[in-house]
Computed example of a mutant assay.
Amino acid sequence: MSTAVNDTVKDKVGEYLETALGKPVDLAPLPDSTPLNTLGLDSLLTISVLVTLLEDAGVDLGEHADSLVTPSTLGDLYALAGRFLAAPQEQAPAAAAPSAAEPREHDEQLAHYQAKLAYEIDSADLQDALDAGQDLVVVDGRSSESYAAGHIPGAVSIPHRSISQDSLAGLSRAPLYVTYCDGIGCNASTKTAIKLATAGFRVKELIGGLDWWKRDGHPVEGHAAADHTHHAACGC
């Protein structure tokens, strides 16, 4: 790959990373071996960057299934961008032109999965983000009583029923806010996410809530944190 192509590839990768992270990224001094998570990308954001790159390049994901291996370093992203963006004329033409309905269905499917990654996070990725010191705030949207009984360490209690413009006035808009509630049988996290998003905050919802957080072995704080007995009453 020529120097000019290298520069083009790095510029494109830089654009994708800046869009995903919402801030400028200077890749010039970074070696290809730089892990993506040191730049602030968790696995969900990394997959979002990958899908965007492949979409821009018009890649047939069925034909190039090997391209769906999640990159872990800058060099991995450069290789993918160089493969699909730097020399599109070298890609083999499709055997037959798809019908008009096929690309539309494909686009809708990609949009669906991208939306899931953009708006949801699982407990493993949340723990990774917390360990990496990423700028995020975990929000417990349940009642204050449920929060006191047990909550994710460091989470703030913002019961969704109490949310208003006044109650949100003191919150910074810089962090990503991750909302959660009891689990799949509770929708307080969704209601909290809607209210925060309506007020202009960046929000993701924790898949499975506190139930799956505990199931995956992550710690809980509160006066009943060690009590795993199921209670019928929802903390919403």
Rank of each mutant, 00 (worst) to 15 (best):
G209W: 05
D66P: 00
E90T: 02
S33H: 05
H160D: 11
A20K: 10
M1W: 04
Q134M: 11
T229K: 12
L54T: 01
D76F: 04
A111H: 04
A81E: 01
S189Q: 07
I158S: 02
A100F: 06
K204V: 12
Q134V: 02
A193T: 00
A224D: 08
D11G: 13
A129Q: 09
V69T: 12
T52C: 04
D128F: 06
L36P: 06
S157C: 15
A188S: 08
P29M: 10
A96P: 15
S144V: 11
L77E: 00
D211I: 03
T52P: 00
L168V: 00
A97M: 10
Q89P: 01
S167W: 04
D131E: 13
T229G: 11
R161V: 13
D26S: 04
L85K: 09
G62W: 01
E15V: 15
G235F: 12
N6V: 06
A97V: 06
I158D: 00
G183H: 05
L54Q: 03
D7C: 11
C181S: 06
N37Q: 15
V203A: 14
R104H: 03
Y180V: 02
D60L: 01
S2Y: 07
I152L: 02
E145F: 15
L21P: 14
A4C: 12
E120Q: 08
L30A: 08
T8D: 14
A65F: 00
A226W: 15
T70C: 06
I163G: 02
G22H: 08
R161N: 14
K23Y: 04
D131G: 03
L126V: 11
A65N: 07
V220C: 07
S123H: 08
P35W: 15
T179L: 05
A226I: 15
H223Y: 10
G183E: 04
A169Y: 11
A65H: 03
P175T: 14
E105Q: 07
Q165A: 08
V138N: 09
A118N: 15
H230W: 15
G222S: 01
A87H: 13
F201M: 12
D66V: 03
G200I: 02
A81K: 06
A225T: 04
F201T: 07
A115C: 05
G58H: 01
A20M: 04
Q91N: 10
A197T: 12
H218V: 05
